[in-house]
Amino acid sequence: MKFQILRFDPDVDQKPYFKEYDIALEPSDRMLLDALIRIKSIDDTLALRRSCREGVCGSDAMNINGKNGLACITKVSELKEPVVLKPLPGLPIIRDLIVDMTQFFQQYHSITPFVINNEPAPEKERLQSPQERLELDGLYECILCACCSTSCPSFWWNPDKFVGPAGLLAAYRFIADTRDHATNERLDNLEDPYRLFRCHTIMNCVDVCPKGLNPSLAIGKIKEMMLKRAV
């Protein structure tokens, strides 16, 4: 199978370049990550992140034939050759397929990603009805792989100012939680020409999310709450 992989090692390379690989896969190499590990067994200089190999840790996000995805749950049989692999777009490349995710995590941290509830904790659990809990489905499952934010043109242009789809999905996850008592502060935190409103519903985030989540919908709900609050 043929691959073209963007390579860059700042220790030796002036600029990134594509390296071609033509390798024989074994029948057990079903996912793209299996193929990459096969390549790495031949060329150990190829650098990539990976861990769980089952789509829950979010390490091996990359740009696969032009679309962001996780290598470990992308079947090789469904890929067109040559398979063109690039690091996630819009973030600085550290080396090969590894990008610097500092800005991505800064935005995640900027939305106060924890439940805020200053009431004294009860002896037992805080009660929540199954319906209330249902509101968190489609939000809490995010694996912070950054496929969404790095496919979003608004994030490419303003990664320092626009929270991005992953961060905003997380923001709504806490707003939607009946145990969190900081909705107003959370909305204040996003009331700004960039942080929330740079989302122009291009919907790339929805298209690429490997977990099938819908940041766009969450963003819409936050905008709606802002609007209601303003009236």
């Binding site: 090692d9 700042p10 220790d11 030796v12 790495k40 060329d43 150990d44 200089t45 190829l46 650098a47 990539l48 550290i94 080396r95 090969d96 590894i98």
Partner: peptide, 10 residues
């Protein structure tokens, strides 16, 4: 084979 200092996964 990889002797780089930067993110040397090997």
């Amino acid at each position: 084979k990889d002797k780089s200092k930067v993110f040397n996964t090997a």
